[in-house]
Design a binder for these strands. Structure first.
Lengths: 220, 220
DNA sequence: AACCAATTCAAACAATAGTTTGAAATGTAT
DNA sequence: ATACATTTCAAACTATTGTTTGAATTGGTT
């Protein structure tokens, strides 16, 4: 069964990639966990690079259209949404990934984190190229929520938000362990997302200090 | 001159590490850029791991005490500071790194970003171990600024802030290029920091939604 | 059952990694 | 200037990486 081998490789790869990163996960580790032959990766995927791509693709093809739907529903209900409403368009699509694959949400967001920080812009370009329309609609929705911000400011705020999200998720395992040890908190991905939302919403919606040149003057 | 060789290695290493990450920078690349022999890294530093540590140490020994001083001055002036005042304690120490080494600020924050996302918690532990007292004072200052937040909530907010900061800086090169192309913005590290501050301050100071279990309910 | 394509497999390959070695060179103190 | 310790250097070593190869096996079709 060839499909089985492919799926087993993808399953093993996504779990290992999300935990140790792309560079630090060897094909031998993947194939031994997937219980398939080493050469089958190159046979079925061509190269490690393409394997990484397909691992991400499997999630993006589900996630991105789901976000698009959420945006459509939100905007026809609330032509003038607020920031938290716009960002909440990401929540349900994210959590729905848990139904596709066990722990799918956590795996996907960690993969995103790895992809953004390890692949030196490759993932960003890939997403921009394949899902540019969804991104534009999202940015447009944010613009509706904070019309007082300039497009440039929104650009920065959005990447701050991506950073918050992606970094938190990439280190979610370590953070969860600390939270359990220090605060007796049992943390789920869902819990982290619900804690993230107020932070991101407030951050993106914060009043801009566009004109200032010297950051020291802003604060003192 | 042995000191020269050591310094040349450190200088080349920090620049390459910050740009391509620790794993993707080989000792051969470092030594060829530093114009020294390959073996001199192991001779002077013992191993690549220790080289990475010393690269970070060179900045941390300057940065951390500077933050500590800022906190001292802030708290004796404002026993009840606000969030932006607390976070602004990081700004001057960060910018002062530019006086130690050309582009020092950018290099340091990118190294931090790499260290946090690539070293699977090693850097976090290292900083906690060697500068735990400064960290505690910072957390305490944040607590003074947002006393309504529980310690656990502050823990999460702080790591959100670290994530925002570190991720943004790690991708600052790419982001700056996009900003220049799309918005004709000439971006400096200082400029990014000044844009970050309102976002982080608002995010950390946001009203908590501690009790909720279902994140979907928070937003809808 | 025979045939052909698809897949699996063990083995080897080429490239790169960090590290070690021992001789050569340099510097320093007597 | 001699003797000693420090530093540099080219080369080799060991391990790991992604990839390729060609034979063996499997699967489906006639």
């Amino acid at each position: 069964m060839s499909a089985d081998t492919k799926v087993q490789i993808l399953d093993a790869a996504e779990s290992l990639f999300s935990e140790h990163g792309f560079g630090d996960t060897s094909l031998r580790t993947i194939t031994s966990q997937a219980k398939v032959n080493l050469a089958s990766v190159n046979y079925h995927f061509g190269s490690k690079k393409q394997l990484i791509q397909e691992v991400l693709q499997r999630y993006l093809t589900v996630f991105m259209p789901a976000v698009d739907d959420q945006l459509t529903h939100l905007l026809q209900k609330h032509p003038k949404p607020d920031v938290s409403q716009v960002f909440s368009c990401l929540v349900e699509p994210l959590l729905s990934l848990n139904q596709i694959r066990p722990d799918g949400t956590a795996i996907f967001v960690r993969l995103l984190g790895r992809g953004y920080s390890e692949s030196q812009g490759h993932l960003r370009k890939y997403i921009t190229f394949h899902y540019g329309e969804v991104l534009r609609r999202f940015v447009q929705a944010v613009h509706l929520a904070v019309p007082q911000l300039s497009p440039a400011e929104i650009f920065w705020r959005l990447h701050f938000a991506i950073g918050t999200f992606v970094f938190t998720m990439a280190s979610s395992k370590a953070l969860s362990e600390i939270a359990l040890a220090d605060y007796q908190q049992d943390v789920t991905v869902q819990g982290i997302i619900s804690r993230l939302m107020p932070y991101i919403s407030a951050g993106v919606g914060a009043q801009a200090t566009e004109t200032s040149v010297n950051p020291l003057l802003d604060i003192a």
